[in-house]
Simulated scan of single mutants.
Amino acid sequence: MIKVRPATPDDAPELVRLRNLMLEAMPAMAAAAGPGPWQATAERLLRERLAVPAEQLTMPVFVVDAPDRPGRLAACAVGTLEHRLPGPGNPDGLFGSVFNICTDPDQRRRGYARACTEALLDWFDGRRVGRIDLHASSGGEALYRSLGFGEHSIALSRQRSY
């Protein structure tokens, strides 16, 4: 049985390490991955967001510890919770995003990413989150579809580098 747990502030460095591995594996992001000021900012943000009381949590993170390496994470799933104005299709106005699912390369094919993602989706379901979005890599698409994700049109997106 895979033991999934909520991340703690002490997991922040490992979560940043896994995030970098994920970025390195994405063709569009690989050149920008690696050491940089983003890592210190990400670690600080994770420590802050994971230190809040459970009822105030807006960045849920679930992890699996590496079974053979104390202090290392095998996998993670990170999301955010946003409260928007309600509408007919989402009367509570709760929206989720899943944006950082990664398994350490030497820990893959053991169900860790699925277990972390299922825990994250259960967390969202427990809060009646009406819609959950993610951008899937080609390697993860089959997993996400098996968990109920499908096509959804997002008309426009704006991105700037600062």
Rank of each mutant, 00 (worst) to 15 (best):
H83Q: 15
V129K: 03
L94R: 11
D104T: 01
C116D: 02
Q56S: 09
L21Q: 15
T41W: 05
A42P: 00
L45F: 02
V4T: 15
L50Q: 07
R114I: 09
G34F: 04
A54F: 09
A12S: 05
R128V: 09
P70K: 01
R47M: 14
V61F: 06
G36L: 04
A75Y: 14
S138N: 08
D125T: 06
I2E: 10
A51E: 08
A42D: 09
Q39A: 15
N100D: 15
L23M: 13
D125Y: 03
D92W: 02
P53N: 00
H135P: 00
P70W: 05
G126H: 09
P91R: 06
D10Y: 04
D11T: 09
A136I: 05
S138F: 08
P27H: 12
R128D: 15
V129A: 02
M29S: 08
L18M: 05
E151R: 13
Q107N: 02
A155Y: 05
L121G: 05
P60L: 05
R47K: 12
I154G: 11
N20G: 06
A155K: 13
D11Y: 12
S137Y: 07
Q56P: 01
L143T: 04
Q159K: 08
A119G: 07
V4D: 14
D11P: 14
S138Y: 08
R44L: 06
R19V: 00
W38D: 09
T8E: 15
A74K: 14
T80N: 05
E43R: 07
R127C: 12
A7F: 00
E14Y: 02
V16F: 04
A30T: 11
G96Y: 11
E24T: 15
G89F: 09
S138I: 13
G150D: 05
R158Q: 12
L81S: 01
D133L: 14
P105H: 15
R47G: 08
A51G: 15
S146E: 12
G130Y: 03
E24F: 04
D122M: 03
L57W: 03
N100F: 06
V52G: 04
M1P: 02
A142G: 02
P67D: 10
L134G: 01
H152V: 13
G71R: 12
T117F: 13
R158P: 05
H152A: 14
D133F: 15
G140T: 08
G71F: 05
R110G: 02
E14D: 01
G87Y: 09
E24H: 11
